[in-house]
Design a protein around this nucleic acid. Structure first.
Ligand SMILES: Nc1ccn([C@H]2C[C@H](O)[C@@H](COP(=O)(O)OP(=O)(O)OP(=O)(O)O)O2)c(=O)n1
Ligand SMILES: [Mg+2]
Length: 470
DNA sequence: ACGGATAGCACC
DNA sequence: TGGTGCTAT
């Protein structure tokens, strides 16, 4: 028979609507979490610093005073007030203070002899829970999420007969328009007859995003930025264009203008070795230059998968869907030991596995209560002489003791294969989660399936992909 | 001295 | 399945 249903090849079928994809990224996130806990820090230049001079041995609770302005660890988050002084992530405390004498340095909490990121994780989860009200929501990191708000945008387009209305807080809304970046007023005052379907959907999506950002701000006190475009690649690119506290719409007509002068490394997944290699092998720097390279040449140089993928990326095309997933797929924790403190005995391995297992067991326990799931697999990882190895096994139980001893057994097996070793990195992780939700009625089952693993209306859509770009 | 603690995914 | 390497925040 014919490989495709004939109707798909006719022009009588209306085109699927372009997806409205959003990337949301909290501003100076760990700093905002700390300001929320200590409002006296509001408006000041601050940075969050990880590492303490005693090797994280002393527990520092989230509720304790954690401002240590003589702290010399490295900065993992920097407020916008501090950035104005030239303070940057990865700077050391002393260097940062030279740039900004008023800088307030907040130390990450510690427990079990290691940094404890619980307060940031929980704040991130609160944000995700709000964003998920807007549509399909994918947790992308502790402070980022992708949303697919196509359905709500379509609903509004039908309700308002097209005609997007100016979003909430229009001064926080930018458009990459025909004359470069501009405020959104001009774009939103496009006459009714002049909107393209795709732009109209983006505009409605932008209104949804403005409302979600407003809820995050008022309910949690956190500001964020967002990008609104037709796919994840472009939405992510846009969310970073006007930080902080701004959202940016990228109409299809502006994609090429945005990409042409952009350094290749700015594209997600090209920020590392591959991006460097692409630029070097081709002797180019920008996405525009990459777009000029024939697909056949990219295929020859980078392979049958990577070549065409680069070709599409240079055109702002990416087809990976926004997944419905608000929870992390794995929980892990670990600690790095500087050369001097490197672990050289099994006794010390055992001690540190126990410490790390305390945190992991605690997190697995609260995750189980909150999310009705338990991990089926655990693993241990370590670095020795610069090489990283990992071993995994079935989850032996959820207690500190069972996790620590299973971890130790895995390490023993590894040690047995080696004459000499020195552990400079040790971590435990848990993954492969299974639901333990109480046996639900059919109706309840379908409800939670749509919320947890399902794809919402995305998943019910016809099998051919919703077009992201022409 | 000090570039830490996490997380997801492609690939074999 | 289990394991490594890359990319990212
Ligand atoms: N190498 C990194 C990068 C980030 N983070 C943490 C601290 C950040 O606050 C948070 C979010 O990372 P972002 O890259 O989004 O940076 P910020 O949110 O701090 O700032 P921005 O406003 O630029 O997004 O993740 C980290 O621990 N280590
Ligand atoms: Mg951020």
């Amino acid at each position: 028979g014919h490989p495709h249903p004939v109707w798909r090849m006719t022009s009588r079928v209306p085109a699927l609507p372009r997806a409205v994809v959003v990337h949301v990224d909290l501003d100076a996130f760990y700093c905002q979490v700390e300001v929320g806990r200590d409002p006296s820090l509001q408006g000041q230049p601050i940075a969050v610093v990880q590492y303490n001079p005693f090797g994280d041995l002393r527990t520092i609770l989230p509720s304790e005073p954690r401002i240590f302005n003589d702290s010399n660890g490295s900065l993992i988050a920097v407020s916008y007030e501090a950035r104005a002084f030239g303070v940057k992530r990865n700077m050391r405390g002393d260097e940062a203070r030279r740039q900004c004498p008023e800088l307030q340095l907040v130390q990450v909490p510690t427990a079990n002899g290691k940094a404890d990121l619980t307060i940031y994780r929980e704040a991130g989860a609160q944000v995700i829970d709000i964003l998920a009200r807007g549509g399909v929501c994918e947790r992308a990191s502790i402070d980022e999420a992708y949303l697919d708000v196509t359905e709500e945008a379509l609903r509004r387009a039908r309700r308002d007969h097209g005609r997007p209305v100016l979003p909430l807080n229009p001064e926080q809304c930018r458009v990459y328009g025909p004359d470069g970046v501009a405020g959104c007023e001009a774009w939103f005052s496009t006459p009714d007859w002049a909107w393209s379907d795709a732009d109209e959907l983006l505009a409605h999506g932008a209104a949804v995003v403005a409302e979600l950002r407003h809820v995050v701000q008022t309910e949690l006190g956190y500001s964020c930025s967002a990008g609104i475009a037709h796919n994840k690649l472009l939405a992510k690119l846009c969310s970073g264009l006007h930080k902080p506290q701004q959202q940016t719409i990228l109409p299809e007509s502006a994609v090429q203008r945005l990409l042409d002068p952009l350094m290749i490394a700015k594209l997600r997944s090209l920020g590392g070795k591959l991006g460097q290699q692409v630029a070097q092998v081709l002797g180019i720097e920008t996405v525009g230059q990459l777009r000029a390279v024939p697909e056949t040449r990219l295929r020859t140089l980078f392979g049958p998968e990577t070549g065409p993928w680069l070709h599409r990326m240079a055109r702002g095309q990416s087809s990976d869907r926004v997944q419905q997933r608000t929870l992390p797929k794995s929980l892990g924790c670990g600690k790095t030991f500087r050369a001097q403190n490197a672990i050289r005995t099994l006794q010390d391995v055992q001690y540190w596995l126990q410490q790390i297992a305390r945190e992991l067991a605690e997190r697995i326990g609260s995750d189980r209560e909150r999310n009705q799931r338990v991990p089926q697999t655990m693993g241990v990882g370590l670095s020795s002489h610069g090489d990283h190895v990992s071993r995994s096994c079935a989850m032996p139980g959820l207690s500190v003791e069972s996790i620590a001893s299973a971890g130790l057994a895995l390490v023993r097996r590894w040690v047995a294969e080696r004459a000499e070793w020195t552990v400079t990195d040790l971590y435990l992780s848990a993954c492969n989660f299974r639901s333990i939700a109480a046996c639900p009625s059919i109706a309840t089952f379908f409800q939670s399936a749509a919320g947890e693993g399902g794809q919402g209306t995305q998943g019910l859509a016809p099998p051919d992909p919703r077009p992201d770009s022409p």
